[in-house]
């Protein structure tokens, strides 16, 4: 049982990283971005290319996948989202467009890398017991948790300690007031994509370090990511972190008692149970603070 909790924490950390990025984008742009999962896949494949073709150690691909994810997000904003915002597109139109972006991105990845399941070239590490507990963790498992914690701490410091983070929270709180307070909204949006896309890209690498993957990984990750965001409270990245850990642990622990294929459903059952008690999510107030 404890072993499942441990596996859940590892998966939950990855969910937390990816979900907090999606939640940040929602908080500031009010965009429900279905392409986020495929941005996660993109990060994993950038790392795969660097790892297999250039022989780079997977750990070194992590910051590079962050940068690649950020660049992709900024490029997509310039190509798709900024023109839609300028024309005053509604949230539903933007959401549907994001499904189109998701499909385009996935097909591009299939075209470039094929649809076969693949994995990073990294040394297999032995699982060692955690003290006297009946829990086996490899060094990579620990490193995934630490990397996720570092990413989340970075996000927290950005939001609370920097001027751009303060402007992000202000924009999420009250966009019109942020405009007339002199906030350079275009700049804040660009940083939002850098952080959100970067976290997606890095999250993809972390996921690939824990298991084999294919070009559909982002699409399947998107379900628990959305569950995590909703559990935590839409538009609150801290809620997304909490929700990610909760959904991750719940899904893995369920494997102890239920057939594996019910895993995803368990995430949604947890989501519904939480919503029955906290209709706006655990930390829900539609805001970044």
């Amino acid at each position: 049982m404890l072993q499942f909790v441990a596996t859940g924490v590892v998966f939950g950390s990855i969910l937390a990283v990816t979900a907090s990025g999606l939640s940040l984008v929602y908080a500031i742009l009010k965009l429900t971005n279905f392409a986020h999962g495929d941005m996660v896949t993109f990060g994993a494949y950038v790392a795969l290319f660097l790892n297999l073709a250039l022989g780079l150690d997977v750990w070194w691909t992590l910051p590079l996948a962050f940068i690649a994810g950020a660049l992709l997000a900024v490029a997509l904003d310039g190509l798709v989202w900024a023109p839609m915002r300028r024309r005053g597109a509604g949230t539903v139109a933007m959401m549907i467009a994001s499904i189109g972006v998701a499909l385009a991105l996935r097909n591009a990845l299939v075209f470039l890398f094929g649809a076969d399941t693949t994995r990073f070239d990294m040394p297999v590490q032995p699982k060692v017991p955690l003290g006297s507990l009946p829990v086996m963790m490899s060094a990579d498992d620990w490193e995934v948790i630490v990397a996720a914690a570092v990413a989340i701490l970075g996000l927290h410091l950005l939001l609370t300690r920097t001027a751009i983070g303060r402007a992000m929270r202000a924009l999420s709180d009250n966009a019109a007031l942020a405009w007339v307070s002199g906030v350079d909204v275009d700049r804040v949006i660009r940083w939002t994509w850098i952080v959100g896309g970067g976290l997606a890209g890095a999250g993809g690498v972390l996921y690939g370090m824990t298991q084999p993957f294919n070009t559909n990984m982002g699409w399947f990750l998107l379900l628990p990511i959305f569950a995590a965001i909703i559990v935590g409270g839409i538009g609150n990245p801290y809620g997304a972190i909490l929700g990610g850990l909760l959904i991750g642990v719940a899904q893995e622990v369920s494997v102890a008692v239920l057939p594996t294929q019910y895993r995803l459903a368990v995430g949604f059952v947890v989501m519904i149970l939480v919503l029955l008690v906290y209709p706006r999510g655990l930390l829900g107030q539609r805001s970044l603070s």
Partner: peptide, 24 residues
């Protein structure tokens, strides 16, 4: 500068953060 009729502060920011925002 402008003080809107409604929603004229950032409710989830502290007073100090609101003022710093005004001084962006």
């Amino acid at each position: 500068c402008y003080v809107p009729q409604t929603q004229n502060v950032f409710p989830n920011l502290t007073v100090l953060e609101n003022l710093r925002l005004g001084g962006t």
